[in-house]
Design a protein around this nucleic acid. Structure first.
Lengths: 229, 229
DNA sequence: GAGTGGTCTAGACCACCTC
DNA sequence: AGGTGGTCTAGACCACTCT
């Protein structure tokens, strides 16, 4: 392994960790030493070690050096696609129905999540996404009109999910996944018995300090979020 | 913004995308051009653009150049901590009880998930994790003894979750999240009514082509997986 | 104080792919 | 065929933090 490629170095470091040559918590040689060993520039070693650190395998601190993470907090990357893409990736046809849309004062829980005064007028959207004509996910969304372009599209023609992703940028957002019993409305819309366990995704997005939207996605039974490590 | 720092360039590119200067799907200037504009080396621009590409904001191809992602697949990074860490991060005390442990032939669904012949002897572990003495998560685990060190620890003293993370490395793994009604056993162990919606985490890990373990975590109601974008 | 990682530079070669 | 991003090099300066 004297020839180049930062990925070769990355794999070799991983191998040494795996076979126990560098046990968890150990300091590993400095970049300079490794560069000498591998016969490459320090920047190449740096690249390899930086990737491993961002994957949670190594912990690096200036002066303190690099150590193998003691209790490795594994990191997994999730792709958060637009719903239409998600459906089409399954080889199904995406459709949606805008069930309701109106402007309402923000209820307290919504307002507090968004950091707005209760009663702030928000647009409320209720959308059902379909995969091959069957219910796929029920989308309940609160939109803050104050941060949106003046002309909203026809949300019967383009789903809010997709329009926001394409037209509205955000600076910050968070996602939460949970499980919940279907509400009465979700049962009706998704066509499942009330109380059915549903996979729930909740997202909020922000443009600097201004909240843009809060959305709750109630997925049809059987839905899974999957990723590799 | 003529002074340095790849992060400055990253933010500036993001800003131009956000204000619509570089709309979605657009080609952006080449690294050489941007380096000239920002008065820095191409490697610095490369670093900034590479980060944005790995975040899903840009799409890069040799010769074709760099374009703003048309339908940005947002990426979120999840931390997968050891359960003990997760409990302690909440300021609670972790404990666990090994409820059962035996060697059993792999049932068909387990075997097929792990790519083993049905009936392969596996170690079956049933563990309840506690937070401040209250049920927190129910862990059902199948372990492949063929790939483990000869001497297994006392799983009444150290949880399999933690021992595996500390002692056994893997080359590949996957995680899936879903929602399911609690089984009879889960109801008893977690102390919830049968049929309660539970958040389920399923993980499999592999050492090259050899399956190591398959684990199902049934989390107590109210559990959320959360992350920022 | 000294050694570590973080970053940058200027230049170079290469693989790839669109033109 | 030529321009693009991907990567590497050799050297440098700096920020941090451990001793």
């Amino acid at each position: 392994m004297t020839l180049n490629g930062w990925d070769v170095i990355r794999h070799e470091v991983l191998r040494r960790i795996r076979v126990g040559e560098w046990p968890q918590g150990t300091m590993i040689p400095s970049e300079v030493d490794l560069a000498r060993e591998f016969g490459c520039a320090r920047a190449t070693v740096n690249r390899a070690l930086r990737e491993l650190a961002s994957a949670g395998v190594l912990e690096r601190r200036r002066r303190a050096g690099t150590r193998v993470a003691a209790l490795p907090v594994r990191k997994a990357t999730l792709d958060i696609p637009v719903i239409r893409q998600e459906v089409e990736a399954r080889g199904q046809t995406h459709g949606f129905r805008l069930l309701a849309m109106r402007t309402d004062p923000a209820p307290v829980p919504v307002a507090s999540r968004l950091g707005l005064p209760p009663g702030t007028p928000l647009i409320w959207l209720d959308t059902l996404h379909l995969a091959d004509g069957q219910p796929f996910v029920h989308e309940t969304r609160w939109l803050n009109p104050a941060v949106l372009p003046w002309t909203l599209p026809d949300f019967g023609q383009i789903s809010a999910n997709e329009w926001l992703v394409m037209q509205v940028s955000y600076t910050r957002g968070d996602i939460a996944f949970s499980a919940a019993a279907s509400t009465l409305r979700e049962s009706e819309v998704l066509g499942v018995p009330q109380g059915t366990p549903l996979f729930i995704t909740e997202r909020t997005t922000w443009l600097f300090d201004a909240p843009i939207t809060l959305v709750r996605l109630a997925h049809v039974p059987g839905y899974r979020v999957q990723t590799v490590m």
